[in-house]
Amino acid sequence: MIVLSSVSKWYPNGARPALIDVSVEIGAGEFVFLVGPSGSGKSTLLRLLLREERATSGQVVVAGRDVARIADRRVPQLRRIVGCVFQDFRLLPNRTVAANVAFALDVVGRPRHVVRSVVPEVLELVGLGEKADRYPDELSGGEQQRVAIARAFVGRPRVLLADEPTGNLDPATSIEIMSLLDAVHRAGTTVIMATHNASLVDAMRRRVLELGDGALIRDEADGRYDQTVPQPLSPSATLPPVVPPPLVMLPPAVPAPRGVPAPTALPARPAGQAPDAERSPWATPTRSGPVG
């Protein structure tokens, strides 16, 4: 479903690469945790999968398509295959729960009878059937995230990316969201969840990819948040045999403490400014004016 081959990403003005020589394969229907400290490249990796950014080098393949080579006007089709939820929910405050979910179908031109039948189903699935007519600010954080998941899932994407979906939620709510994502996964969706929530990762025991300073430093099936027991890198069991295990492509290097090959030297780059802060519409408004 997703294949990264020697993917590196430099942001303009970045002092160091956001991703270095990352190679990994994620099969259809897998559930993968993406862990690593802030700034380790998790979000960048997700953005590459959505073609919000292009890799500086290497190849990103999603659902059989080389993402960098998709024509700009075809990018929307990629994004219908790859759904996404975020830490900050990103709901439209002036629309009801049902309207937020329906929006995702409306704007891709789904017919009205589909919207009318699918939206209540999905809201039922995420447990918000009763709150379809509420507005986002009348909901708890966990409920808002459920709406966001419903919106991402309603178009039946083949991949769901979740960027720290529990980052703003209390532990109990986080578990609810986790089980909802698990349900989405069981429905056949490939799920990639970037998270800092150690207890969730430890409880689920799914495949864990760990990034450190832009490099893939761990790929462990049934992994934990922190690797306690040193263990060799295990290529995913779902890899077809003809494809060499991706991490073999990492340069052999200095002895790595966890038995994982580490990248050799960082490519030097002239000192520049810090990477641009993400200019998100949800960012705190700056001089550009009041929030609409």
Binding site: P76, R79, R90, F103, G155
Partner: peptide
């Protein structure tokens, strides 16, 4: 932003 995200 949401329209882009969901593939409009």
């Amino acid at each position: 932003a949401i329209m882009k995200l969901v593939g409009a």
